[in-house]
Nucleic acid binder design. Structure first.
Length: 415
RNA sequence: GUGGCUAUGGUGAAGUGGUUAACACUUACGACUGUGACUCGUACAUACGUGGGUUCAAAUCCCACUAGCCACCCCA
């Protein structure tokens, strides 16, 4: 067996990439309409950045990071998500000094050492967007609307938006205790994992898929009912703005987050079409993150879209493109002529194919058909002599005589 | 890290102990010597993931390993 790719690392082959181009183009198009600029940050960062931002005790940091020591004995990590790096850059370059309000987006590979399964890979790709410096819930609603817009531009109506509020350092600790009080009485009904997480992350029990846990937590107190006044009005206002522009959403008061930095608004775009992986995009507000990382006291909100997961929802067949013209050439002189005509047409924006190996006319026609070329131009001895050649429209079989110069060929292709 | 399933050519796949590994697609060439798509013909696995074992005989049974997939955990 020859060398294969690393487990969980995939090649994106021709036929599949077109889908990716489409997704990326839709993101660029939509995000820029909402005033976002692209930012490109490194794939490797110091390990501490992720440990501090994502949270020391999260699964990502505890067991999923690709971390190693480089030759200078620096502890570095292949980024498991995008927000930390973007915020590091925001702080490092003091972008806030220029304008505390920034709207940034990024796209690229992320790495997590997990067992691969459907819609989950060790190298995967995210398209993300981050806003800093706006505390007003208008931005929550706008970011959510932009995310919804992105999916509708892709003609995907399946993923639905779910939102929740996780409160803030003011109200979450109290709620956490209230919830623990409730769960304490149900401990024997909860699954092993939930019991284990009782101290570290009791909120997770609300999102557990085990039947016993679902029934046991059915009447559990909800975060939404324990928000402080500030968080409560923030959430209400977010909803109001969403409704103002008819952005469809559903409240899911059991949604929790795997990263520590989230506060207040959190959300996911969920689908039932991807097996165990229901989230195709997720995000939330992170009001404390930037200052935690040594930056100024500015708020943030953002999301990340799982590109593989979106790609899984899209039909690959729809995005292939085919050449405008195939030039069939018979004989050496014709081949030379075909070569230069092709080159000239390519220079003016026409996509042209021709045969490289002096194959038979039948072979060349077959190839033209296989590549779904719109037109075929046939050049042989007599065409060279007369300066005119048949141009065949493949779909209809209709053939017209054209003069053998790029202008007239190009003109005929347009019609 | 744990569990389940699977492993035959470029692809999808038949074949569950016995001489030539079915079929379809793809690819190449040809029938139509200068016109594709339809049709027809021809060609294409030093042999069945790897290593061992059982047997007179294994792609077919057993064991181990590896890989892939799906699921748990967690997440995009």
């Amino acid at each position: 067996m020859s060398i294969t790719a690393i487990k969980g690392f995939n090649d994106i082959l021709p036929g599949e990439v077109e889908k990716w181009h489409h997704i990326e183009a839709a993101a660029r198009d939509v995000f820029s309409r909402f005033g976002f600029s692209e930012i490109r940050v490194p794939i490797l960062e110091k390990t501490d950045l992720f440990a501090r931002s994502i949270g020391d005790t999260t699964d990502i940091v505890e067991k999923e990071m690709y971390s190693f020591i480089d030759k200078g004995e620096n502890r570095i990590t292949l980024r498991p998500e995008g927000t930390a790096g973007v915020m590091r850059a925001f702080i490092e370059h003091k972008l806030y000094a220029l304008d505390p309000l920034s709207k940034l987006y990024y796209m690229g590979p992320m790495f997590r050492y997990e067992r691969p399964q459907k819609g989950r890979y060790r190298q995967f790709h995210q398209i993300g967007a981050e806003v800093t410096g706006v505390a007003n819930p208008k931005i929550d609603a706008q970011v959510l609307t932009m995310l919804s817009r992105f999916f509708t531009e892709l003609e995907l109506d399946e993923p639905t938006l779910e939102i929740n509020s996780l409160g803030c350092p003011e109200c979450r600790p109290a709620y956490r205790e209230t919830l623990k009080e409730f769960l304490r009485l149900k401990l024997d009904a909860l699954c092993e994992d939930c019991c284990r997480r009782f101290e570290t992350n009791p909120l997770r029990a609300l999102d557990c898929k085990v039947e016993g846990c679902k029934t046991a937590t059915a009447g559990a107190p909800a975060m939404l009912e324990h928000l402080c006044t500030g968080c409560d009005t923030h959430f209400a206002s977010t909803r109001e703005y969403l409704e103002l522009v008819s952005t469809r959403y559903r409240i899911n008061n059991r949604m929790v987050r795997g990263l520590d930095y989230y506060t207040r608004t959190t959300f996911e775009m969920v689908t039932g079409l991807l097996g165990a992986q229901s989230a195709v995009a997720a995000g939330g507000r992170y009001d404390g993150l930037i200052s935690d990382l040594g930056g100024p006291q500015v708020t943030g909100i953002g999301f990340a879209v799982g590109v593989e997961r979106v790609a899984l929802l899209l039909d690959a067949a729809k995005f292939s493109s085919s050449p405008d013209l195939f030039i069939v050439a018979l004989g050496e002189q014709s081949e030379r002529r075909a070569f230069s005509i092709a080159c000239e047409l390519q220079a003016r924006g026409v996509s042209v194919e021709f045969d490289y190996d002096g194959k038979s006319m039948k072979s060349q026609m077959r190839r033209a058909d296989k590549l779904s070329c719109s037109f075929t131009l046939i050049i042989g001895e007599s065409e060279l002599a007369s300066g005119k050649a048949p141009l065949k429209e493949m779909a209809t079989g209709v053939q017209t005589e054209v003069t053998l110069d790029t202008d007239s060929i190009a003109n005929h292709l347009k019609s």
